[in-house]
Design a protein around this nucleic acid. Structure first.
Length: 559
RNA sequence: GGCCCGUUGGUCAAGCGGUCAAGACGCUAGCCUCUCACGCUGGAAACAUGGGUUCGAUUCCCGUACGGGUCACCA
C-alpha cells in the first residue's frame, strides 16, 4: 500500500503540513509552573453541578499558578447541539465567578466570538486543521478509511446505538466487530478510488497497534499510578462528515492550544488508552491528566448513581431559582474538592475561597454524594456574616426575579427591610436563619403579611393565652427599654401563675401552670404568627406600636 | 459479559505499619440565655469481607463481595 498516495486520494485539498500548523501556535510565554487548563463543554444543555466541579479545579489551578484558563467549545456533534446552549453555559459560569482568559466569549452582539491567538475555539471551525493531521496519519500508515454507502449511513443514524449494543450479546458483538475491523484494514487503493469515484462517504479510523495484554504505566494526578491496557481498537478519528471525534480533537487541540493539565470526569478513564496512542502517533507530548470522581446521587433503591442532568440539584440554574448565593455554592464545592479546605476556612473565615491554596493532593478519589444539609450549613454561615445592607440587596434582587410580589414588599421601604435583616446580625454570634434567599419569606414575611399563623400547642388553655395577651396589652409601652419591657412580660407571667424565672420553673415545674418561655411564645405567635421568630422586642420595635397592638388584639379576638 | 476505578460513622472526610481511629454536616442530651435562635459541653454512630506479609495491620499484597464507570461515525 502506497500510504502517501492514499493520503492524497483522501485529502486532495489539504496542502499544508503539520509543521505549517505548528507555526501558527507558538509555545505560550508563561512563568515557570504556570498551568494551562480549559473548560471544554459540548453545547448540548446547561451547566450542571457535576460539570462545575472539574471547571472549578481548572480555573483554580490556572489562576493560582499564573497560567491561562480558556474555553473551547466542543461542537463536533451537530445532531445533539442545542441552540443557545453555549451562551447559556458561559453566562452561568460567569454567575459563579468563573472567568476565562481566552477562548470563546460572548461578544457585544451577544453572540459567541473568539478571543485569543490559539483559536479558533470552536471545534466546528477547526476542520482544516484536523485534516492536516489526519492526512499525516494516513501518510504514515497509521489511519485508514472505511467507506459506507449513504443508505447504510442513514440506517446507522436511525438506531439508538447504545440501546442496540446493550440488547446484544457482548461476546458475539465484539467478535463480529473485531472481524469487521480486521477486514476493513485490508482495503486496497483500487477500492478507495472506486468508492471515492462513487461519492461514498468514509470515516477515518486509526490503525491500532496495541496489545491489550500489555499494560502501559500511567500516572494520573488524582488516581495515582495506573496500569492501562494498550488500545487495540481502530476507533474513529474523522466521522463521515469530516468532523473529528472527541478523541482526535482532544489530541490536536490540547496540543496546539498548549493545555498542560486536562481535568475531566473519571468516565474518561477507559478512553485513556486511545489518547495515549493518539499522542504517540502524532508525536505530541501528553498533558498531565486529572480524572476526578463523579458526584453521585441516591436512586430509589438506595444505590449511588452518577448525578445526571435530570436530577434534583443538577442544573446550576436551579440553584439560582432556589435562592442559593453563588458564593455559597462555590464554597460548598471547595469543601468537596479539597479535604483541607474547611480547616483553612475556619482559620481564615473572612478570606474569599480564591485565597485558598488549592492542593491537588488533597482531592478525594472516590465519588461523593451531594448533600443539601451541608450546602445549607455552609450557606447559613456565609450569609450570617454578610451585612444587613448586603442581605437586603441580594434578597430583594432575588425576590424581584423569582417572587415579584414579595420583591415589591421588600423594595417598598428599604430602610424597614434592612432593619429587619439587621436583627441578630453582626457580632460574634450572628443568627443563622437564612440558607437561601427563598428562606427569607418564611423567616420574616410576617412583617409584611401576618396571614400565616401557627396554632398554639394544645397543652395550653385558651384562657391562659388570652389572659397573657390582655395583660401584655395593658402594660405595653414601646418606649420601654428592653429590660423594662421584659420585666413587664414577667409580671404578666406571674399574674397568670406562670414562672417568671426559668430556673425556678425547672426546679419544680409542677408548682407553675407554665413558664416565662411559654408566655413569650404566646406573644410571639400573636405578633409574628410563628413559633420561631427573631428577637421579639426588636420585632415589636420595627413593627410599631399600632401594628403590634393590632395584631395582639386580633389574636385575642379570634381565640 | 470484558476492561477500568472505587470501598473509614447516615453524609463529607482525616489517617499514609503501633492513634482511646480526628474534624465537619445531620441526629441527640444537657448547659447558657429574658423568649426563638446563636453559642458551649457531652452522646450515639465507621475502617465491606477472607486470606496472607509483619512482633503488630484501617494503613502493604492477593482473592471475594458490593458500588460506580466504560465498551458509538456522543462527548
Amino acid at each position: 500500500m502506497d500510504h502517501a498516495r492514499l493520503a492524497d486520494l483522501l485529502f486532495p485539498n489539504v496542502t499544508r503540513t503539520p509543521e505549517d500548523i505548528e507555526a501558527l501556535y507558538p509555545p505560550r510565554q508563561l512563568p515557570e509552573g504556570a498551568k494551562v487548563t480549559r473548560f471544554a463543554p459540548s453545547p448540548t444543555g446547561f451547566v450542571h453541578f457535576g460539570g462545575l466541579f472539574p471547571t472549578t479545579i481548572g480555573e483554580r489551578l490556572a489562576h493560582q499558578s499564573g497560567g491561562v484558563f480558556y474555553l473551547r467549545i466542543e461542537d463536533t456533534d451537530a445532531k445533539r447541539e442545542v441552540e443557545g446552549a453555549a451562551e447559556g453555559l458561559i453566562r452561568t459560569l460567569e454567575h459563579y465567578g468563573i472567568h476565562f482568559d481566552e477562548g470563546a466569549v460572548i461578544g457585544e452582539d451577544g453572540k459567541i466570538c473568539d478571543r485569543g491567538i490559539y483559536g479558533p475555539y470552536r471545534q466546528s471551525q477547526r476542520g482544516p486543521i484536523y485534516h492536516v493531521y489526519a492526512k499525516q496519519l494516513v501518510a504514515l500508515g497509521k489511519a485508514y478509511p472505511v467507506f459506507t454507502t449513504k443508505e447504510e449511513l442513514e440506517a446507522m443514524n436511525a438506531v439508538d446505538k447504545k440501546a442496540e449494543i446493550k440488547a446484544k450479546d457482548w461476546h458475539e458483538d465484539q467478535t463480529a466487530q473485531r472481524e469487521a475491523m480486521l477486514r476493513a484494514r485490508e482495503i486496497t487503493l483500487e477500492e478507495v478510488e472506486k468508492n471515492l469515484a462513487e461519492g461514498n462517504p468514509f470515516v477515518l479510523r486509526i490503525l491500532a497497534d496495541g496489545d491489550p495484554e500489555k499494560k502501559v504505566p500511567f500516572t494520573d494526578l488524582i488516581k495515582g499510578k495506573l496500569e492501562i491496557p494498550e488500545n487495540d481498537e481502530d476507533f474513529v478519528l474523522l466521522k463521515s462528515d469530516g468532523i473529528p471525534t472527541y478523541h482526535f480533537a482532544h489530541a490536536v487541540d490540547d496540543h496546539l492550544m498548549g493545555t498542560t493539565h486536562v481535568i475531566r470526569g473519571e468516565e474518561w478513564l477507559p478512553s485513556l488508552a486511545k489518547h495515549i496512542m493518539l499522542f504517540r502517533y502524532l508525536g505530541f507530548r501528553m498533558p498531565k491528566y486529572m480524572h476526578i470522581a463523579q458526584i453521585m446521587r441516591l436512586d430509589e433503591n438506595g444505590n449511588k448513581k452518577k448525578l445526571s442532568k435530570r436530577d434534583m440539584g443538577a442544573n446550576m440554574d436551579d440553584y439560582s431559582r432556589m435562592g442559593y448565593a453563588p458564593a455559597c455554592v462555590c464554597e460548598y464545592i471547595m469543601t468537596l474538592l479539597n479535604s483541607n479546605y474547611e480547616e483553612w476556612h475556619m482559620q481564615n473565615p473572612d478570606k474569599p475561597y480564591t485565597d485558598f491554596p488549592f492542593n491537588i493532593k488533597k482531592m478525594s478519589n472516590s465519588g461523593c454524594l451531594f448533600d443539601f444539609d451541608k450546602l445549607n450549613d455552609v450557606s447559613k454561615n456565609i450569609i450570617s456574616r454578610m451585612s444587613a445592607e448586603e442581605v437586603t440587596a441580594l434578597v430583594t434582587a432575588w425576590a424581584k426575579e423569582y417572587d415579584p410580589a414579595f420583591g415589591e414588599q421588600l423594595a417598598r421601604d428599604p430602610a424597614f427591610t434592612q432593619a429587619i435583616f439587621a436583627i441578630g446580625r453582626g457580632g460574634k454570634k450572628p443568627r443563622k436563619d437564612l440558607a437561601t434567599w427563598a428562606d427569607a419569606k418564611p423567616y420574616m414575611g410576617f412583617f409584611f403579611d401576618p396571614a400565616q399563623i401557627d396554632a398554639y400547642p394544645e397543652q395550653f388553655s385558651i384562657e391562659d393565652i388570652k389572659a397573657a395577651l390582655v395583660g401584655f396589652l395593658r402594660s405595653y409601652d414601646p418606649a420601654d427599654e428592653m429590660n423594662a419591657w421584659f420585666d413587664k412580660v414577667k409580671a404578666v407571667a406571674r399574674e397568670i401563675g406562670y414562672a417568671d424565672d426559668m430556673k425556678a420553673y425547672k426546679a419544680d415545674p409542677s408548682a407553675f401552670r407554665g413558664s416565662i418561655a411559654d408566655v413569650s411564645m404566646f406573644l410571639r405567635v400573636a405578633v409574628t404568627g410563628k413559633m420561631n421568630a427573631p428577637d421579639l422586642y426588636t420585632v415589636m420595635q420595627i413593627l410599631s406600636k399600632d401594628e403590634t397592638v393590632r395584631r395582639v388584639q386580633s389574636m385575642i379576638d379570634r381565640l
